[in-house]
Design a protein around this nucleic acid. Structure first.
Lengths: 213, 213
DNA sequence: CCGAGGCTATCGATCGATCGATCGAACGTC
DNA sequence: GACGTTCGATCGATCGATCGATAGCCTCGG
């Protein structure tokens, strides 16, 4: 069979958790969306919370791996941050449902389940923090409060998942370029615009998120 | 009595809806937080959804009124946008719970209840859109995709409600100034920094949101 | 000045519905 | 006949909401 039941359960959970929220999604909603009985659901998951935690874990690991791969061996902080922005925006535009689950439902997890998820998120944000701080130290970025700026820019880029539609006037490339430009400007960066290897970012996203890019 | 039961119910709903979500908050949670029985709750509200809709309605009306008052009689789009940013950031830093409810729970409302809420939000965002477009037309702002930029900047500013703590190193004034600066830079604005009448913004916020500023 | 009647505020008890989760059994495939 | 997969039936708990009743307070006719 092309699509396994296990995959249908995961896809149903991502879709419904994103649109109706974790508490707003019932076991029976999940079962209907996955085309299974509510009893069969439990053949593929532990508790409903386990399912949510698993989704967050894999989604964050994928983003973290992609970010590390995209920025590996790039010493220039400007180039690295632009790559991080492009990758982040592409990922949020391509998989908005998964992203919204990760961003909005973190604190419905019990402390024990939340802890490793937060650790993954922190590891990812540290990639941004390092690029920004190195850029400030090198004099290519200018900001009075690097930590606050990092939070502001991350929120801006994550917001893409809330509104972007592939049927809108903007193509993915333009979107990523535009956000890279906004971030560069906000950091007072004077170096030439453009994401050096947008093509490479797209390839990584295509590889990690499936061929839907 | 200094604090009426009706006010306690509203405050309890804002707090719990913001931290646990609408569907994650039970009638009995609400009752406990408001120090009432679950039956007494219904003396002060219609359904749980009515309570949510009322919170969103008043919160958005307050923000919209404040924004109109703060920008009234200001023809300069740069000055107007900076004022909008400062007000938005201050409001989100002072009342993060209310803001998170408005931002995150809009689509748990039934279509009939959602429609007027979305209309209010659109009216507010149009203030931003007008300032940005006028600035672009006047040649003081530079952006290829004004609508996308507006969404990006709004998301950035709204994110304040997700992380800002008054016990952190940044005072409200610095926070508002910093965001105004980020927005100005992202729009390629070369005019002098600083929010012209930050004091007036603070007064409006203090008046509309209570004396907690 | 009284007390009957109405109004506001509150509650314990309980409603039917739905929640997340589990059980034992039946299916097909190797 | 063992295993992976699916399901109908059902569990106790909790959900949002409503009921009738009670206690305090204000008003106003006598």
């Amino acid at each position: 069979m092309a699509v396994t039941s296990r995959e249908r359960v995961r896809a149903a959970a991502v879709k419904l958790f994103a649109t109706k929220g974790f508490h707003g999604t019932g076991i029976r909603d999940l079962a209907q969306e996955a085309e299974l009985s509510s009893a069969s659901l439990y053949h593929y998951m532990g508790t409903k919370e386990d399912l949510l935690a698993e989704i967050m874990h894999t989604a964050l690991n994928r983003l973290l791996d992609a970010a590390r791969e995209a920025t590996a061996g790039s010493p220039d902080p400007v180039h690295r941050l632009r790559t991080l922005v492009a990758l982040h925006v592409l990922a949020h535009a391509v998989g908005p449902a998964e992203t919204r689950v990760v961003d909005n439902e973190v604190d419905v997890l019990s402390p024990a389940a939340r802890e490793p998820v937060v650790a993954l998120r922190d590891a990812y944000e540290n990639l941004w923090a390092a690029a920004i701080e190195e850029g400030v130290a090198a004099g290519v970025f200018h900001t009075e409060h690097p930590a606050v700026t990092r939070l502001a820019l991350l929120e801006m880029c994550s917001g893409v998942a809330r509104w972007y539609s592939p049927r809108g006037p903007l193509a993915l490339d333009q979107l990523a370029e535009h956000y890279a430009e906004l971030v560069s400007r906000a950091l007072g960066c004077t170096s030439p615009p453009g994401v050096a290897d947008l093509r490479r970012c797209r390839e990584i996203v295509a590889k990690e998120w499936g061929m839907s890019v």
